[in-house]
Amino acid sequence: MHVGPDDHLTIGEVIRRTGVSASALHFYERKGLIFSERGGANQRVFPRHMLRRISLVIVAKRLRIPLSDVAEVFAGLPVDRAPTHKDWQRVSRRWKKQLEERRRVIERLEQELTGCIGCGCLSMKACLLLNPDDALGGRGTGPVRLQQPDTTP
């Protein structure tokens, strides 16, 4: 029996294959992350290629990537057919840029934490916690040094 990417799966089959609950699938569908159709007896069926989208949503959630970011990336994929290799390449290039920026932010945080914990605050001139006259307050809220792009070469 040949199984193709445009074959359809019942919601029960999708749950069994992905481990995602029916309520989560409905939620992802409302958010525009996945799509279903109505099959016989008005039953919800999913094109098999939605399994890849669901898998990427699962991974994104584990990495704490907001679903709005996932939806933005998925907006570049067709919903009426299985995405081609070219479609996935285009989308992955876009997502790669976002992931690289996340990685840079995490690496900066790691450097800041390592430096702060390891310094023992022996040098108040180099300490990144030092903020004379609340100079950083004018640059925004929260940890502005970590939120802003790194401008060091």
Rank of each mutant, 00 (worst) to 15 (best):
I106P: 01
D133T: 08
E100I: 15
E29K: 04
R44M: 01
V91C: 02
E72V: 08
L146D: 02
L146N: 03
T10S: 15
P5F: 03
A82T: 03
V79C: 04
Q147I: 14
K86W: 12
K86G: 08
I117Y: 10
P132G: 01
P153A: 15
E107F: 10
F27A: 11
N42H: 13
A126Q: 13
R103G: 03
V14C: 02
R104N: 09
Q148T: 11
V57Y: 00
P78Y: 03
Q147T: 12
T84Y: 07
Y28G: 02
V45P: 01
P78A: 07
G115C: 07
R139F: 15
D87Q: 03
G19W: 07
T141L: 11
R44Y: 03
A135C: 13
K86F: 09
C119M: 09
I58D: 04
M124L: 15
V70E: 00
T18I: 13
P5I: 04
Q98S: 15
R139P: 10
H85P: 11
L136A: 12
G32H: 04
G76P: 00
A60M: 00
R48S: 14
A126V: 10
P5V: 08
D6L: 13
L136Q: 10
G118D: 06
F46M: 05
H49S: 05
R90Q: 10
E110C: 10
A75I: 04
I106S: 02
Q111D: 14
S36I: 02
A71E: 00
G39L: 10
V73D: 01
V73S: 02
H2S: 12
C116A: 13
V14E: 06
R93H: 10
V59W: 15
V91T: 09
Y28W: 09
I54D: 01
A22F: 08
F35Y: 12
S23M: 10
D80K: 06
W88H: 02
I15L: 09
T141V: 14
L25Y: 04
G32F: 05
S36N: 06
C121G: 14
P149D: 11
H85N: 14
S55I: 10
I11W: 03
K97Q: 12
S92N: 05
R48Y: 11
D80E: 12
L113S: 07
R93C: 02
D80C: 08
S68E: 06
R17D: 13
K61S: 07
M50L: 11
R64P: 01
